[in-house]
């Protein structure tokens, strides 16, 4: 089981690690890169807690091998804010009480950010279907959907 040297860019930073080829990108981010904001809720792509963007595409990091990230750009929850400036989604999640336990929150934020990048003015239905792969057991989704819609509105206003 020889390990593979992986070179990647995580949140804009050059990162290198040695990965057992069986390890997922999620394992590598958490155990080798030290970024534990990305969570494992299922390990089977059913809960979305491990959502990250790879090359700008939203994926479950539990369904990507660490070795597949070689040469790729990966963006995680830890890269979402600009220093102390929170992303509007992060602010709106706090403001709308869109989190209770907070465990699913990083995955929701990363997924919602990907949605707003391609659809700045989503309908409620669009938000709900886009986020269907992110499970939240605490909130019943109501406040999450509101927070995403409100963040979208604010971002549209800023862009205008």
């Amino acid at each position: 089981m020889s390990k593979v040297h992986v070179t990647t860019t995580v949140n804009g930073d050059a990162v290198e690690f040695l990965a057992d080829p069986r390890e997922t990108l999620l394992d590598c981010l958490r155990d080798h890169v030290g970024l534990t904001g990305t969570k494992e809720g299922c390990g089977t792509g059913d809960c979305g807690a491990c959502s990250v963007e790879m090359e700008g595409v939203l994926v479950c990091s539990c369904l990507v091998l660490g070795v597949e990230a070689n040469g790729k750009r990966v963006d995680t929850i830890e890269g979402m804010s600009d220093g102390h400036d929170l992303h509007p989604l992060q602010r709106k999640f706090i403001e709308h009480a869109a989190l209770q336990c907070g465990f699913c929150t990083p995955g929701f934020l990363v997924a919602a950010k990907a949605l707003l990048a391609r659809s700045p003015d989503p309908t409620e239905e669009e938000v709900r279907y886009w986020l269907a792969g992110n499970l939240c057991r605490c909130t019943g989704y109501d406040k999450i959907v509101r927070a995403v819609m409100d963040a979208a509105a604010e971002m549209r206003q800023e862009a205008a």
Binding site: G45, V59, L131
Partner: peptide, 9 residues
Amino acid sequence: VGSTQIQGR
């Protein structure tokens, strides 16, 4: 097939 995330792969 699967979620938005799954669709990415």
